[in-house]
Design a binder for these strands. Structure first.
Length: 209
DNA sequence: AAGGACACCAACCGCTTTATC
DNA sequence: TGATAAAGCGGTTGGTGTCCT
C-alpha cells in the first residue's frame, strides 16, 4: 500500500542550514537535477527531510533567484495580482521572475500590507477601510457596491479586476487556473482572461498605469 | 551603553492535492 | 477503487539584526 515514508524525522536536522549542507545540496542538484526530493537527502548525504531540501533550494539556493529589494513595479504587480487571485503566492510568484512565493509572501506581510493600510486600503479585500473618508468612491460606485458589485480603488489601478469580476458575475466565474469553481467548463472565461488556464497569466497585459 | 520594541526573513508546520500501489 | 505517501502550498513561528528610548 502506498509508498514508504520519505524520511525518519528523528534522524533529520532542523533549523538553519549550514554552509556545508548548502554546498552538498547545490552540488547534488547540479549533478542530478531537481526532483525526487524523497531520495535526495540520502543520496546527497544530507540529514534533512526532503521537504526541507526542496524548500531550501527553491527559496534560497536556486541560481536564478533575484535577491534584494522589490522595485516599485514589482510591488504594483504584486498588488494587482493579489487583487485578482488573493493569497495564491505561488501563482503570483510565477509572474515575477526570480522571486519565490515565500519571498513574496514575506514582502506582502511586512511591506505591502502596511503600504495599503497607509493608503486606507484593506489588504485582504483591496477595498477602502473607511469608504466615507477615502475619497475614492463616486456616487455611481456607491450604488454598485450596495448592489453587491465589486469595486476597486482607482489609486491602485485595479480597473482590470473590476472588469474581470463583473465578467465572472455574469458568466459564472470559472478562473479555472485555480481561482474558482467550474474548472475548464464550457463557460470558462479563462482563455480570454490573461491566458491563465494555460498557467501563463501575462501580467504585461494588465497595463500598468 | 543597555535593553526593549520592532522588522525582516528563513524555516517549519499542517493541510490539500496528486501520484502510486 | 481505496489507502497511503509524496509533493506542493499557505500560514505561522522563531532567530537575528536594527532602531529607538
Amino acid at each position: 500500500m502506498g509508498r514508504s515514508p520519505c524520511c525518519e524525522k528523528s534522524l533529520t536536522n532542523k533549523g538553519a542550514w549550514s554552509k556545508e549542507e548548502d554546498e552538498r545540496l547545490i552540488a547534488y542538484i547540479k549533478a542530478h537535477g531537481e526532483g525526487c526530493w524523497r531520495s535526495l537527502p540520502k543520496a546527497a548525504g544530507l540529514l534533512r527531510c526532503g521537504k526541507s531540501c526542496r524548500l531550501r533550494w527553491i527559496n534560497y539556493l536556486r541560481p536564478d533567484l533575484k535577491r534584494g529589494n522589490f522595485s516599485e513595479e514589482e510591488d504594483d504587480l504584486i498588488i494587482k495580482l493579489h487583487a485578482l487571485v488573493g493569497n495564491k503566492w505561488s501563482l503570483i510568484a510565477g509572474r515575477l521572475p526570480g522571486r519565490t512565493d515565500n519571498e513574496i509572501k514575506n514582502h506582502w506581510n511586512t511591506h505591502i500590507r502596511r503600504k495599503l493600510l497607509g493608503r486606507g486600503i484593506d489588504p485582504s479585500t483591496h477595498l477602502p477601510l473607511r469608504p466615507a473618508n477615502s475619497g475614492c468612491r463616486s456616487d455611481r460606485e456607491e450604488g454598485d457596491l450596495e448592489q453587491g458589485k465589486l469595486w476597486r480603488c482607482p489609486d491602485l489601478n485595479l480597473e482590470i479586476s473590476e472588469e474581470i469580476e463583473m465578467k465572472g458575475k455574469e458568466m459564472g466565474a470559472c478562473f479555472g487556473c485555480g481561482l474558482a469553481a467550474k474548472k475548464q467548463s464550457s463557460e470558462c472565461i479563462c482563455e480570454g482572461f490573461l491566458a491563465m488556464s494555460r498557467g501563463a497569466l501575462d501580467y504585461r497585459s494588465l497595463g500598468m498605469n
